[in-house]
C-alpha cells in the first residue's frame, strides 16, 4: 500500500492566518463553554413524561418507545434519508470491483462461520430492543457487517436477486412504516398513532422490516455501486485509463 498523504497539511499557513483562526476558535470555544455553563443543572426534559406513559407504548425500553412510538416520525424520515443516501451513491456511477485473484481458504471458512452468527445476533438485538438497549438500527448495522464480510470475501449478489428483489427489500421498511402509519388514519386515529393494545406487535413488525432495509442499505452503501449494473462494464469514475 502506498502512503497517501494530505498535501494540504504539508505547508504551514501564515502566522496571520493561524492567529486569526486561533482567536476565532477561542471565541467559539468560550461561547460554547458559556452556553453549557448556563444550562440549568436540573433539566426538566420529558423523561418523566416518557417514563409515565411507557406502558402505553407497547415496549418497556424507553428509548425504543421514543424512537418508534412517541417520535416515530423522526425514525420514518431517517429511513428515508438512508434510502436517499443510497440513491445518491448509486447515481455517482460507482467504484470498480476490487477483486483478488485467489480464494483464501481461511477467510472462506471464517466468513462461512461468522455470517450466520452475525445474522443470529442481529435478530437478538432486534428482539431485545423492546425491553433493553438494542433495536432496529443496531440490528441493521450488525446485519450490514455480515454483508461487508461477504463483500470483502468477493461474494457477489446473484443477478436474479439484484434487480427487483433487492429494491423490494431496500424500500420494505419505509413502505411498511408508512402503510401502518396510514392504516390507522382510517380508523379515526392520527398518522402514526397505534392503538395501545396492538402497539407492541406493530413496533416489532416495523422494526423487523426496518432492520432488513437498514442492513441491506448499509451493506449496499459499502459496496458503493448498483449490483444490477454489470461490474466489469466499468462506469467512468473520473480516472481515465
Amino acid at each position: 500500500m502506498r502512503k497517501i498523504k494530505l498535501k494540504i497539511l504539508e505547508k504551514k499557513p501564515s502566522l496571520f492566518t493561524r492567529l486569526t483562526l486561533g482567536i476565532l476558535m477561542f471565541l467559539l470555544a468560550a461561547s460554547l463553554a458559556y452556553a453549557v455553563w448556563s444550562l440549568p443543572t436540573q433539566a426538566l426534559g420529558l423523561s418523566a413524561e416518557v417514563a409515565k406513559n411507557v406502558e402505553m407504548s407497547g415496549v418497556s425500553n424507553p428509548v425504543t418507545a421514543v424512537l418508534l412510538n412517541y417520535r416515530s416520525y423522526d425514525t420514518l424520515l431517517e429511513l428515508g434519508v438512508l434510502l436517499l443516501a443510497l440513491f445518491g451513491v448509486w447515481s455517482l456511477g460507482g467504484v470498480s470491483a476490487n477483486k483478488s485473484s485467489f480464494v483464501n481458504p481461511i477467510l472462506d471458512f471464517l466468513s462461512r462461520f461468522l455470517v450466520p452468527v452475525f445474522i443470529l445476533f442481529s435478530g437478538y438485538l432486534l428482539w431485545v430492543g423492546g425491553f433493553a438497549p438494542g433495536g432496529a438500527f443496531q440490528a441493521g448495522a450488525v446485519l450490514a457487517a455480515a454483508g461487508v464480510l461477504l463483500f470483502l470475501n468477493d461474494w457477489q449478489l446473484e443477478r436474479k436477486y439484484s434487480g427487483f428483489s433487492l429494491r423490494f427489500v431496500l424500500v420494505l421498511g419505509l413502505v411498511l412504516f408508512v402503510a401502518i402509519g396510514f392504516g390507522f388514519v382510517f380508523l379515526d386515529r392520527v398518522f402514526l398513532e397505534y392503538p395501545p393494545q396492538l402497539a407492541g406487535g406493530l413496533i416489532l413488525l416495523i422494526e423487523a422490516a426496518a432492520t432488513l432495509s437498514i442492513g441491506i442499505s448499509l451493506a449496499a452503501l459499502f459496496l458503493g455501486r448498483d449490483p444490477s449494473v454489470k461490474s466489469d462494464s466499468k462506469i467512468d469514475t473520473g480516472v481515465h485509463k
Partner: peptide, 23 residues
Amino acid sequence: DVALAEATIGAGLTGALFLSALA
C-alpha cells in the same frame, strides 16, 4: 443504546469502509 449503535457502526462498518476507500 447510543453505545451499542456506536459499537456496531464503529467496529463493523466505518473501519472496513475507510480501509476500502483508502485502497
